[in-house]
Design a binder for these strands. Sequence first.
DNA 1: TTAAACTCTATCTTTCCGATAGAGTTATTC
DNA 2: GAATAACTCTATCGGAAAGATAGAGTTTAA
Lengths: 148, 148
Amino acid sequence: MISQKAKYALKALIVLAKSEPDSVQMISEIAEVQRIPKKFLEQILLDLKHQGIVISRRGKAGGYLLLKKPEQITFGEILRIIDGPVAPLPCLSRIAYRRCVDCVSEEGCEVRRVFAKVAEATRDILDRTTLADCLDATVEKMVSSITA
Amino acid sequence: MISQKAKYALKALIVLAKSEPDSVQMISEIAEVQRIPKKFLEQILLDLKHQGIVISRRGKAGGYLLLKKPEQITFGEILRIIDGPVAPLPCLSRIAYRRCVDCVSEEGCEVRRVFAKVAEATRDILDRTTLADCLDATVEKMVSSITA
DNA sequence: TTAAACTCTATCTTTCCGATAGAGTTATTC
DNA sequence: GAATAACTCTATCGGAAAGATAGAGTTTAA
């Protein structure tokens, strides 16, 4: 399960991706449209700003906008920022590898071997799907071409 | 991430699958070999017993053994027992579907559409990989044939 | 200068995870 | 038939994380 926070983040980013390039969107506007608690969304967008996904304009008529193009922002990237590693086991994470303390031999671990396949399949989708794939009806084609 | 508990469960079941059919294995034995806290493993095996995965023999010379054949026990089945739904979003779960309260339209939800692919790929692996696939070197062949 | 926006840090409540405790039951063995 | 070695069950606990809220502060446009 991905966290509620990650889901909110993706939804907010999709709103930004769908709006006019270079136009700013207010937190309160996004929060209302997507039914996200406003103060919670503030934190989320701040995180995304610190990670260089969005930029903000303060003051009256302020708001948020994407720093990169929708094609350059992947689902995997956002998930890692908000939820941490995508991997199903700590010993399968690329960004936060941690050896399992209870594992006698990593190479011999059958559980690890199976979940390595899961991790691979998951990354295949998440790291290749971008916000741009959410913009119109080409989504179906895009995603199915990946999994074909 | 799957829980530590689920990992323990799978490891314990693999031990049972690897041991002589119809022979019982003691909790303490499994706990020691796999470095699982014994009292924790008791709970796990009890859960698995209640779900019809293993059976137990009490008293001296007691222990646990598989109720079904290794080929009939999938990773997905065990994960669902221990961790609950495999789905990345509540609205994508088959065993515990729950509509997202913040979702205006489920069909129009781009996040859902992407993660539906993730769920499918994950299930493809987890529901087709069994304990038997962990028994010997055929693992590689098995799993790669699935994802081919 | 004021209003409307973002910024930042703190806190709160609830739930879950991982683990431990301990009293109870069953079955074997001598 | 008593001792012992196993599983059974329920309760509980500490810590972490999730989800959210609060509020004082800063910036900018008008």
